[in-house]
Nucleic acid binder design. Structure first.
Length: 282
DNA sequence: AGGATAGCCTGCGGGC
DNA sequence: TGCCCGCAGGCTATCC
């Protein structure tokens, strides 16, 4: 479900709604979603929340203890159907099923400040706990490619110019670049005018540059629209994203291309359902 | 190396 | 109304 724009939307919201609050207690309802230590200290009980970080589709929460001690860290990966929801005091979640973890928060004076819940019906997501951000980075992030919304990806794509893989499979490989999923791969390929099936070794350098620019542009527009809601995705405030209104190809197989009017084609590329325009994409 | 496949889960929409 | 089937935004393991 959530790709980079959705996770970034949640991260930015949490940055403005949880930083400085303290975790009063943690309620684990389904321990299986937590990998690594799952005791209350590892899950931030008593710690004060710092600004969350993100790399690709992964979100890192940081918890600070006594002054001078290193912050603890955990990765929240939302998988296909995961949600991190911020609830105010007394606020009940829209749905109470599939809630696996709940952090109850208090402000600096100890007054109730609501909670954050991790909800994930399909349970493809999970939580990984670490003693420090450095440990988290080594275990989970150091093997990922550069964040797809960060610097210019052209040099990274050029590293794969002899690869026989399809350009779409390459974009979805989180070791190549982190954050692109099925929706934004199709949208960026449409914007760049490149067919998803094309082998990397047959892309011209100018096409690689165009693709890099399109990936970043599509992701930035999607972040501005607060992500794409198809079914499960909600911001931490429980709201839907808006970028699905701007999708050019994803979910539109058989419909008319918004640019040229030709029927969009669909098929399987890199084991994922894929939609492209036979006229606009070469 | 990278393809294909299966598996991890639940929910939903379509066809009957 | 209900049942069965296929499919879904992610990722990993295994085999070839």
């Amino acid at each position: 479900m959530p790709e980079l724009p959705e996770v970034e939307t949640i991260r930015a919201e949490l940055a403005s709604t949880i930083v400085g609050l303290r975790v009063l207690n943690v309620d684990v309802r389904r321990a299986g979603v937590i990998r690594g230590r799952r005791d209350s200290a590892a899950l931030f009980e008593g710690l004060t929340l710092a600004t969350p970080r993100r790399h690709g589709k992964q979100l890192a929460l940081l918890g600070e203890g006594a002054a001078g001690s290193e912050p603890r860290a955990m990765v929240v990966h939302l998988g296909m159907s995961g949600q991190l929801l911020r609830l105010g005091p007394e606020e009940a979640p829209v749905r109470s099923d599939h809630i696996h973890v709940r952090w109850e928060l208090v402000d600096a004076r100890g007054r109730g400040a609501g909670s954050v819940i991790f909800r994930d019906p399909r349970r493809f997501g999970g939580i990984w706990t670490y003693d420090s951000f450095e440990q988290l980075y080594e275990a989970r992030w150091s093997g990922l490619g550069p964040d797809a919304a960060g610097e210019d990806l052209t040099p990274r794509l050029l590293e794969y110019r002899r690869s026989v893989r399809s350009v779409k499979a390459t974009m979805l490989d989180q070791q190549v670049m982190a954050g692109v999923g099925n929706i934004y791969a199709d949208e960026a390929l449409f914007e760049a005018g490149i067919r998803p099936q094309r082998s990397m070794r047959r892309l011209k350098p100018t096409e690689m540059g165009r693709l890099a620019a399109s990936i970043r542009a599509v992701l930035e527009r999607a972040i501005t629209a607060r992500g794409s809601t198809l079914r499960d995705y909600r911001t931490s405030g429980g709201e839907s994203g808006g970028f699905q209104m701007q999708h050019q190809v994803y979910g539109r197989g058989g419909l008319a291309c918004r640019r040229c009017g030709k029927a969009l084609r669909s098929g399987v590329v890199g084991q994922r359902s894929t939609v492209w325009c036979p006229l606009c994409q070469r």
